[in-house]
Structure formats: structure tokens, C-alpha cells
């Protein structure tokens, strides 16, 4: 089974469970979060992301997506060597990109179309361009697709270092 097919299969499984909703927590009286101690260290302005090895460049084949997760195991994504240089592409050829594969509209899993290098949502038909930093070609998301920032080491290891949009289903890209 190719990576593309695995993504599609994963998409179907996930999609079939679309009715699932988060279990509601117990009804407890409202409690405000206490303000931070005035003496505490100031928090950094931005989230601190894990630097995570996603793959080695030798594992990538042109236009064949590889499933990854980032910034943690609950956040599926995909890394693709497009074969042509793109804005925001990483690696010696400037053609490696990585994206979240949870649709930023409703969280259904995106499926990669190799024929036009797009990520597609079977839930509500949104389409994102993998060659245009995740621009939504058409769809219901109010954001373009979250892209993972990449760095490529001398040994060909590809690491993710951050994310440029809020990932679906999180109030913080880095979960507590």
C-alpha cells in the first residue's frame, strides 16, 4: 500500500466516525484560572515548539506523500517532495513541504491527490494547494492550511520546527 493509499484509507476510517463528539466534562461550578504570580518569569511571546525529526531526505520519493505527526502524535500530517522548487520549500531542491492533514474547517482527514498536488477533504470538499504553501483553492476553512516549518540537516534529516496556523481541534498548537 502506498503512502497515498494509506492516507486515503485513514481518511475513510476517520470520516466514517464523523458523528463522534468530545465527551462533555462534569458540570462543575465555574472557576477562574488564577493570574500568574507577579514574580514569575515572563512567558515567551510565542509557543516553544519541539524540533522533531520527521524523515530523512533519502526516504522521500517525488510526489509520494509520507505520513508524519507533528508537533505530537495526535496531530497527523504529511511530508512531500514535490519535485519542483516552491516558495517555502525546504531541502537542497527547495521542494520539500509538510502540512497538517486535519482539515482546518472541521478536522476531517485530508487526502493527497498526486495528479494535481493538492490536499482534499472528503467532508466538505475543501482543497488546498501543496505547491502554494497550503492556500485554500476552494473550501469552507477560514484559514489556509497549517504548514510545518522544516529544516534539513547535512545528513539529510528533515526536522520540523514550528507551525504557521492554528491546527484544527486545538486551542494551542502545543498541548499541555
Amino acid at each position: 500500500m502506498t503512502a497515498c493509499n494509506r492516507l486515503a484509507e485513514g481518511g475513510r476510517r476517520f470520516f466514517l466516525s464523523r458523528g463522534a463528539v468530545a465527551a462533555a466534562g462534569a458540570a462543575v461550578a465555574a472557576t477562574a484560572v488564577p493570574l500568574a504570580d507577579a514574580q514569575a518569569e515572563p512567558a515567551p511571546a510565542r509557543l516553544t515548539y519541539a524540533t522533531t525529526r520527521l524523515a530523512n531526505i533519502s526516504e522521500l520519493k517525488v510526489n509520494e506523500p509520507l505520513s508524519i505527526t507533528y508537533p505530537d502524535a495526535d496531530s497527523p500530517g504529511v511530508i512531500i517532495k514535490l519535485g519542483t522548487r516552491v516558495v517555502g520549500g525546504a531541502g537542497p531542491d527547495g521542494d520539500i513541504v509538510a502540512y497538517s492533514t486535519m482539515c482546518p474547517h472541521k478536522g476531517f482527514p485530508l487526502v493527497y491527490r498526486a495528479d494535481d498536488r493538492t490536499l482534499n477533504c472528503p467532508g466538505h470538499y475543501s482543497r488546498f494547494d501543496a505547491e502554494k504553501s497550503g492556500l485554500q483553492i476552494w473550501g469552507q476553512s477560514t484559514a489556509n492550511l497549517a504548514q510545518f516549518r522544516l529544516a534539513v540537516g547535512a545528513n539529510g534529516d528533515i526536522t520540523a520546527t514550528g507551525v504557521d496556523e492554528l491546527i484544527y481541534g486545538r486551542i494551542s498548537n502545543v498541548l499541555a
Partner: peptide, 16 residues
């Protein structure tokens, strides 16, 4: 809802 977790698809507890 426990918002420290990834919410599932179609979650009533997520906002963009």
C-alpha cells in the same frame, strides 16, 4: 471539555 487534548472532527468545542 478538556481543551488540553486534541478535539475530534466536528467538535463543538473548537473555534478557529
Amino acid at each position: 471539555v478538556n481543551l488540553a487534548q486534541q478535539q475530534p472532527a466536528d467538535s463543538p468545542a473548537w473555534y478557529s
